[in-house]
Amino acid sequence: MGGRADELYDVTARRASRAVLAEYSTSFGLGTRLLGGRARRDIEAVYALVRIADEVVDTYRGPDAGALLDELEAQTSRALVSGHSTNLVVHAFARTAARTGIGHDEVDPFFASMRTDLTVRVHDRGSYERYVYGSAEVVGLMCLAVFLNADRQPGEPVRRPAPTLVTGARALGAAFQKINFLRDLGADTDDLGRSYFPGVEAGTLDQEQLDEILAEIGHDLAAARAALPGLPRRARLAVAATLGLYDRLLGVLACTPPDELLARRVRLAGPRKLAVVARSVAGELRTGGTGAARVDA
């Protein structure tokens, strides 16, 4: 076998990853539609891997969840070396990783954070920051690697980001994670028994605590937005669209009393999401940066 059969397997793996994204995230999916074909497929592969790991610790949560997570990490590690996996999602991720330079620097902290969800219920400042780094900031770094290498040709060196882009990618991932922590505050407490924000006891949140969290997220979003001009053009539009959605969510969260955040998940209706994306893209086209990717030599 080989040749056409290998290509068919790759295509099937990519379709599996696309299906995961389509089922689990409308907001993230909207942003990917602004990317070119290769970048979109690679982002789908990244999303699918982190999603199925998250499902093990958040949805399944069976007595063998730790063993399942260990096996998924082992499959991923093997595939980073061999470029192949019998797990279609892992296979698609491995192909993306080889093309974009994603490796253990990103993968290992991610799985470490996922493993934390199986044992840690309340976080202090140190464990919270480590968790956010592994669960979200490294995902931002994976996405950045995809953006910078979307048009890289075989034989060309992998493009590595400049420090300003690294800062922006980490901030973007952190902001998204913290917003989702706020949106899922009730479910994390009632269903999962977790409290992520340091100093916030499970099932409680006062206005002062909420204001501090919102300010922290606002700082992250500002740092992410400052890095936009250094991204390639289509990636810049996709990230601007996603930033617009989360800016809007942050505004809604700021107008929602703490007791309501504990009782329901804040959402944006589909038509409103489309309107926010359209405005964000239009605004970035009018005032965006040069679109020249900043990379380290």
Rank of each mutant, 00 (worst) to 15 (best):
M1I: 04
G3F: 03
A5M: 09
E7Y: 01
D10M: 03
A16T: 10
R18E: 12
T26F: 09
S27M: 05
L34N: 01
L34E: 05
R38C: 00
D42H: 11
Y47R: 13
A48G: 13
L49M: 00
L49N: 00
L49R: 05
D54V: 14
V56Y: 04
V57H: 12
G66H: 11
D70K: 13
Q75T: 11
L80Q: 06
G83L: 00
N87G: 06
H91A: 02
A98G: 12
A98Y: 00
R99P: 00
R99Y: 01
G101L: 04
I102V: 08
G103L: 02
G103E: 01
D108T: 10
D108V: 09
F111E: 07
R115E: 00
D117W: 11
D117S: 11
D117A: 12
V120K: 12
H123Q: 12
Y128L: 15
V132E: 14
V132I: 15
Y133Q: 14
S135R: 14
G140A: 06
L141F: 04
M142P: 07
C143H: 08
A145S: 10
G155V: 07
P157D: 00
R160C: 01
P161R: 07
T164Q: 14
L165M: 03
V166G: 02
A169V: 04
A171Y: 11
L172F: 15
A175K: 13
Q177V: 06
K178D: 14
K178H: 13
I179M: 06
I179L: 13
N180A: 11
F181C: 10
L182M: 03
L182C: 01
R183I: 02
A187T: 15
R194T: 05
Y196P: 05
A202Y: 15
T204I: 08
L205A: 01
Q207Y: 13
Q209C: 05
E212F: 03
L214C: 12
A215I: 12
G218L: 08
H219A: 12
L221E: 03
A222I: 08
L228K: 06
L231D: 07
L231C: 09
P232H: 02
P232L: 05
P232A: 00
R233I: 06
R236C: 05
V239I: 15
D247A: 11
L253P: 11
D259E: 14
D259Q: 10
E260F: 05
L261Q: 00
L268S: 02
A269V: 04
G270W: 13
P271T: 02
R272F: 01
L274T: 03
V276E: 07
A278N: 04
A278P: 06
S280W: 06
A282H: 02
E284Y: 12
L285F: 06
R286M: 14
A292E: 15
V295L: 06
